[in-house]
Structure formats: structure tokens, C-alpha cells
Nucleic acid binder design. Structure first.
Lengths: 221, 221
DNA sequence: GAGTGTGAAAACATTCACAGCT
DNA sequence: AGCTGTGAATGTTTTCACACTC
């Protein structure tokens, strides 16, 4: 056995469909009154509005967390979910575009609660530069690289109008940001090793609209 | 054959996974320069970053829209997508909660472009009542029923803090609103015949976070 | 008895590959 | 030759159902 034999991180692969539900389970646990100590897959399934076998299958990817005949310990479960989602690393994020949406995101307490720290707000509008939003000073984009290096920023949140979004994305990637959450209604170019998630408000409304005139059909996320 | 024999609307059922991509295709078509007249499944697939067989399969649910050896006519395709998504009905929407997020939504032009009309803004904060946002007057929630009846509001958009969201949802449903787009970070109760879609900003970030420390894994929407 | 963990089945979604039309 | 529409193959996700543990 060679000396440099490393401790190989076990690479359990969690299916994408499951990953999407893990934050949901975490949210459900937050909504339980704090004196409860355990929860069954059926209980959790009812809260999350999914099938109970689904919950058990999903959680089984994280390891053997439950106790047969008893259920899951809430504290353990929460810790494991946070660990698996990478919420204990304390990732830093910046928000680019400090309009109404950017401000809303800057004020949104849910990020801090979940372990994300917003460390910078960027905008090139002279009227906004140097103003304070949610306790942070709005900074021009030219300072972004400096900031990203200094705080080791992992996540960039784009809340600019559509026409600036691709340029901002390119700049973020240049600054070493490997994950982007995009709220601008444009399709960003894929870049190797960079994760891009887009949330398009109007697309959500359009999906809703499809199910609007057909009350028989059932929507699925 | 009875006199009241009705013209039965053919009930082609479109798979949920396809419905989620239709707005994406529509967005891709919008990004094409206006002098193009046709497009192939391969072209559209590249824009939408999906497989070309996927595009053909998805579009085939809308009918036989393409021409073998040629491709799809952009205008026809756009019309058909809009028709299928119910974007030609001109649904009316109201926004409840006029904080930063609500204001962002009210200003967001993408809704009007896509056929949705925001006809009311509601908030119970005395400081906001009667102020103007995006050309609309902020109105107290007590007037909501009157408004919803008057404008036949189909869609309610919830942009309040989490603690008010369920109450607002109940009220919207009482007012006859059958579709809700919820931005508050809480799980709303399911109600029969009411479509609820939730967009949770912090959940999106958590999903991104999962893929952050594992550059090998590939994220899928 | 209650409730997990998981094979096996069923349902759903994607992709291949090609016949058939222009 | 170029490109659609779609059976068939493959891959993924959900659900059932039950052996097993507490």
C-alpha cells in the first residue's frame, strides 16, 4: 500500500430528483414544534406532500438514519440533511443587480438561516453606488474580482435586467465563482465545471397557466 | 344522437416534464432574430440545451407541427405554444405583499409580454396603502374580494413574509382564485381544484450548494 | 404493533435509430 | 439530402409490499 494512499471520500451518488427534495424536508423539519423529538416517514411525507415510501427511499441515500419501529430522530436528520447539502461549509455569495429583486434577495433572511452569507452587493448604477442595502454597501462591478478573492465567494446571484445577465455571468466566472443562481429571464451559456440554475418568474407563471383551464389535470413539479 | 351532444375537446394529455419545457422553447424562439422563418429541432435543441429528439417528442404532443425535410415554422410554433399554455386567454393576476419582492414582480415586464395582466396590488401596511407602484395603487386586503370578482382574477401571486402566506392563500381561494404562485418560504396547504406552485429562493440555493463541493457530479433540473 | 429499508414492479422520461415525407 | 415523427430501447423515478428490527 503506497504512502500517499488517501482517504477516499465515499461517493454515494444521490439522484437529482432526491436532491431537489432534500431542502423541502429540511423546511418541513423547521415547521415542526420544537418539543417533538422524532418523526416517522409518514408524518414527514404528509408535511412535504409526497409518498411515504418516497421519503424513506430519499433518506436512505443519506445512510441508515432511522430506527425500525420508531422513526427518525429529528436532530440527527436535520444535521445529516445540512451536511449532505453542504450547508455547513458557510458558502459566501454576492448579489449582482440591486434593483427591487436584488434588494429583496439581500433582505431575505432565509439565506443566512440556511448557512449562506451574502458578502457583497454589486451594481453599476451611479445612483445606487455607495448606498446601503441590508447593511451592505453597493459596490461597482469593477471591484468584484477583488471581493470574490478576498471572501472566497462561491456563489453569484444574478438579479440584473436580462440584457446584462450574460456579461455579469462571464465576469463572475472570471472571478472564480463556480455556482450561479440566475433570476434574469435569459438563457446563460453553459460553462464547464460551473453550475448554473435559473429561476424564471414568468416561466413559472406559464406553467401554472397550462393547468389553469383544465381543472382535471394534475400538476406535478 | 342527442341534441345537446357537445363538441368534446380532444384531451391530449401533455406529460408534466414536457409542460415544464414549453415556456423554455417559447423563450428560445423569442431570442431568434426576427428574419428567420423556420427552425429545425436540432437548432432549437441547441438553444434550449436539450436533446433534439426531446424537442421533436415534446412538440409532437402539440400536434403535427413540423414539415419533414424542412423543420418547424417559427410563427406557427409560437402560436401553438402560446395556445397550449393558455397564454392567449389574457389571465388576470394580483400580487399580495408589496415589499421589495412584490415591487420587483409588479415592475417585471415579462408578465405582460407573456399575456398576464397584473390588475391589483394588495398590502395591509398603512405606510404602503394608497401609494403607487408600477402604475397601480396599493390596496388593503379587505378590498380583495371586490377586485377579484370585478376583474375575474385567475392567478394570485403571494410575495408576503412567510407568516402571512397561508392566511393570504386562504383569502385568495375564498375570492375564487384557482391558481397561486407562492414566493413565501412556507408550504401552503393543498386545496382541491386549486393549483399551487411555490418558488423558494433559499431552496434553489441549497440545491446549488449540493453540487458545489462535488465538481464531478452533474446537476439536472 | 409500529415503522424502517429495500427488492421488485410499475410508471414515467429520455434517447436511439430509422422509416417516411419534402 | 435533410429533417420530422415515432416505435423500440434504455434510463430514471415512484410506488408497492414485505422481511426485518425495535
Amino acid at each position: 500500500m503506497p504512502l500517499d494512499c488517501a482517504l477516499v471520500k465515499e461517493n454515494r451518488k444521490i439522484p437529482p430528483a432526491t436532491v431537489k427534495r432534500l431542502p423541502l424536508y429540511l423546511q418541513c423539519l423547521d415547521q415542526i414544534d420544537s418539543d417533538s423529538i422524532g418523526i416517522s416517514s409518514k408524518n414527514l411525507a404528509d408535511l412535504a406532500k409526497v409518498n411515504d415510501a418516497q421519503v424513506r427511499r430519499d433518506l436512505s441515500y443519506l445512510g441508515t438514519l432511522g430506527t425500525r419501529g420508531v422513526g427518525y430522530d429529528i436532530k440527527t436528520l436535520r444535521n445529516q440533511l445540512q451536511l449532505e447539502l453542504g450547508l455547513v461549509e458557510g458558502w459566501s455569495a454576492v448579489i449582482v443587480g440591486v434593483g427591487n429583486l436584488g434588494s429583496a434577495l439581500a433582505h431575505y433572511g432565509g439565506f443566512k438561516d440556511k448557512g449562506f452569507g451574502v458578502v457583497g452587493l454589486f451594481d453599476d448604477d451611479p445612483k445606487k453606488i455607495n448606498s446601503q442595502v441590508a447593511g451592505l454597501v453597493v459596490t461597482p462591478l469593477s471591484k468584484m474580482e477583488e471581493y470574490c478573492k478576498k471572501y472566497n465567494v462561491a456563489i453569484g446571484i444574478i438579479a440584473t435586467p436580462g440584457e446584462y445577465a450574460q456579461g455579469v455571468a462571464d465576469q463572475l466566472i472570471d472571478c472564480g465563482v463556480r455556482s450561479i443562481l440566475n433570476f434574469a429571464p435569459v438563457l446563460l451559456k453553459n460553462v464547464k465545471d460551473v453550475q448554473i440554475r435559473s429561476v424564471d418568474l414568468s416561466q413559472e407563471l406559464q406553467i401554472l397557466s397550462y393547468y389553469l383551464d383544465r381543472p382535471i389535470l394534475k400538476a406535478v413539479d
